[in-house]
Design a protein around this nucleic acid. Structure first.
Lengths: 334, 334
DNA sequence: CCTAGCACCTATTTTATGCAAGTGCTAAAT
DNA sequence: ATTTAGCACTTGCATAAAATAGGTGCTAGG
């Protein structure tokens, strides 16, 4: 592609991102140092290539999805974060006493605030966590709380009512056995080890071992579930405040989608490459009118996805810059 | 107020709730067994009383806020729940192993589903909980997790990095002292007791007692904070799908409000009477175009508010019926 | 290869018009 | 003293017609 065409495309994309108005040939004369007629010719060829679109036969051009993609891959320069923004993020990252999950959640709030788009963190998993301790706390009546804590300090708890004939001591004894044998086991292998290592042992010593086994089994499964179901949004309203959302139906549609957890999870499931992934319009499965930019973090035993949702005319340079920074700072080097 | 006027108001309110269309005099002839002219006369007097309004000089009447209030207080009969709905709610209430908070959250989902309005649970507090156990779990390096568990099985945890010169044994010893002395203390008194009972003791035995004291202090404050900040929404989209939300600005406004936690909390703070409280339009501080109906629950040591947000033409009879049921079933008798 | 000029499109805004729904008032009926 | 019928009048809404603005494509000349 010729250089002037590239420059033209770049100008059109950036102008449209800024103004949301189809861009006409006249407005670019100065920047490209040629007449509107010349620009119209070039525009026509860019349109033939599928990089530009017209709303109606005679209004300015807007970038097509293919146009955005070309822009993202060839023309855009990620923007460096401002010192101010870096500072905001660093204060979160460096707060060592903040539970990691909370830190990430706060991080997403900041992202939404500085980008002005909707952002999500989701799919938190903890499979690099290992078991640190199981605790049983007896309550009154036949109730207990079972706690699971990992080496990274994640804690989940679940309440149980003891089945008839199961005595407290048996539960406690089992928890001690688990603590003796399974500490250091990756958290997502615990269920398996529980079945193959622990069950045979307690079956010899405990009468109602099936019930006891089930309690611990559920406690660990609860851990896995709670970890994965976590979806944290920030700035839902930012998206619908963009001027492209100028009709009621469209807003309702997107608002419903925000509440559809299964759909949100699709954002996470879509496998991309390392680093930053960009899904423009039809490329993403969430909504054909938005762009999703996401990255993953693997940090202190927790992993998850951070995604930003904005209109297709997203400020790619700023968002990519920001997510790159986060991606670099939130990944343990191997 | 004359009986016929009451009946007229009732019909108008109920018709408007159903159809969202201003109701004209003709449409009510049959129900009231008189001519449209008579009805027009009565309407005029109801309007003078401030119970009805007109959009423009000549379109049917709609109820004013005062009209809704009169309806709610004098004309409406709360609707009994259907057996089906009762069943749905009972399955939640009767699941004894569900953490109460989770049960309430699920409850709110159901409420939103069966009413088709937005619902919230908020302001969960735990001041009837008493301390059951404090646990310290050491992690690698100088990190620890401090756990607080109440007699009702609520658990909160917080991670700390030990300050220099503070040894693990000192923390553990302190936690033992707390467990010996403070078990059974109402959870919101623990901070005070920590200062007046525990601090003097450890100051004699532990060198860096100020640091140790601070860790536990923070752990308990963390408990209080986490308990109170909890806001759980369900069905945000239900409200904006109502036909009165037919313009973009209005939808954006309400969506922003949904994300404003301080504003949401005002719903809880507004003190009302026991039982069900109804705030119509200007009467609530959330948004003058909606009605908020709320009730509180005090159940197994947890208390909080459940609120339903809908348009002013809310189906008061159904919602009040539902919330009454919940109010009855979710309050320990004194 | 670039540019000026002009005919031509199409969306948007403005203006005009007719129609539907409902009211208020007056006068007659009960 | 109420209730009702009749009618003039008001307003909103929908539809159509006209004017406007922004921009294009093409042609011809530099």
């Amino acid at each position: 592609m010729e250089e002037r065409q590239q420059k033209l495309l770049k100008e059109i994309v950036e102008s449209y991102i800024k103004t949301v108005k189809p861009v006409g040939s006249k407005s670019l004369c100065e920047k490209l140092k040629c007449s509107s007629a010349t620009i119209r010719n070039e525009m026509a060829t860019l349109e033939e290539m599928g990089l530009l679109e017209k709303n109606h036969i005679s209004s300015g051009r807007i970038p097509s999805e293919k146009g955005y993609r070309y822009y993202v891959e060839n023309l855009m320069k990620p923007k460096e974060l401002t010192g101010e923004d870096v500072l905001k993020l660093q204060t979160i990252f460096s707060n060592r006493d903040l539970q990691l999950s909370d830190a990430i959640n706060q991080c997403v709030e900041i992202i939404s605030e500085i980008t002005n788009y909707t952002s999500i963190v989701l799919g938190k998993k903890s499979h690099q966590n290992t078991l640190q301790q199981v605790s049983i706390i007896p309550l009154k009546e036949d109730k207990i709380v079972a706690l699971v804590c990992t080496d990274q300090g994640m804690v989940q708890n679940r309440q149980f009512t003891l089945p008839a004939h199961v005595r407290m001591e048996e539960i406690v004894k089992t928890s001690e056995i688990i603590n003796k044998m399974l500490i250091g086991t990756p958290i997502d292998e615990v269920s398996t080890r529980l079945e193959y290592d622990i069950k045979p042992i307690i079956s010899k010593r405990i009468e109602q071992y099936e019930s006891v086994y089930h309690i611990f089994m559920e406690a660990f499964q609860n851990f896995a579930t709670n970890m994965q179901e976590n979806i944290h949004f920030s700035g839902k309203h930012k998206l619908i405040e963009k001027p492209e959302y100028d009709n009621v139906e469209e807003i309702r549609k997107i608002t419903s989608k925000f509440e559809d957890e299964d759909l949100i999870k699709k954002i996470e499931e879509k496998k991309g490459s390392k680093g930053i992934n960009i899904y423009i319009g039809e490329e993403n499965e969430f909504d054909p009118n938005v762009t999703v930019i996401k990255t993953t973090y693997h940090y202190h035993g927790e992993e998850g996805t951070i995604a930003i949702i904005g209109p297709k005319r997203m400020e790619y340079d700023r968002v990519v810059g920001l997510l790159s920074y986060i991606n670099e700072n939130l990944n343990d080097e191997k």
